[in-house]
Amino acid sequence: MLKKLKPLSLLLFLALPLMLAGCSTPEVLDPKGPVASQQSDLIILSIIFMLTIVAVVFVLLTIILVKYRERKDHDKYSPELHGSMLLETIWTIIPIIIVVILAIPTVRTIYNLEEAPEAKTAEAANEDPLVIEATSINWKWVFTYPEEDIETVNYLHIPIHRPVEFKLTSADNMAALWIPSLGGQKYAMSGMQTTLFLQADEAGEYNGRNANFTGEGFNEQRFVVYAEEEEDYGQWVEEVQDSAPELTQYEYDELLIPGVYEEGTAEFNGTHLQWIDHSKDAEYTLEAWERLGYEPKNPHAKDKSQNILPEDEIPYYQQDNTVDYSDENMDHENMGNEEHASHE
């Protein structure tokens, strides 16, 4: 009868090293920055505790099944045994202790992650975090560098050793910005802004994506992070500022139409913030659809074609629609929306 449980436990314990050997270290456990490494440490700590618990239960189960299986002489059979204050106290208190031990570093890390990672060098300590506004659109990412006044689609460059403050929002569905090598994800939601601090300590290319389901093109909503030395980063910014085309409102509104970005990536001079801050106005995308003539269609419709109007046929784009989204202006204009964002 012992045989019955052996394959199961064997399978599990064999599987572990096999899988670890079969593929290289999983991305999440191979951190490339301080945020991801805090999380990785926490994960490994919890795995150690959890493996211990699993081992205790498996061993106990195996022993009990072997010793007390039905056999000819059941002299150990004690049907009157149905409780033990001592034992029950032990297995109530031990889990409490484990929960406490795990809760302390968890809470500490939760608070740590709310702030920019601590600077390791004196030089870095003087610098403010690099602010990047990340906007999710069905099904692409737009990265806005407000200081540098540039915007990219589906890729971004960041300097290493410097915290990046991602200000997340969404033009439409709720998405999640996730770069596993650099740290965990956070939701990007329309009409509000969330903040995610990340930092790369090693130069390299990292995969990022939207991790929260947003419909048909969700799969393709990926981007690449180029983490590089400060000067290489500066050079890239200059290059974009010098050579990238100017972003027009029509072009930006076209991006808001659900779809995968066929060109793959793009970069622009100027940012969409001159017309719209999605964290303050959730309706903009739907208005843009209407202007352009885009209509959501039943996925099972026989005719799914869209008739998008060209720029020169829409009077809206012939005028200056620039909005001032500086904070002062917003306070009385959009009180309602501000409240939504207040929980973050």
Partner: peptide, 8 residues
């Protein structure tokens, strides 16, 4: 804090 990496 770890869930940010497991979520989704």
């Amino acid at each position: 804090a770890a869930d940010y990496q497991y979520h989704n």
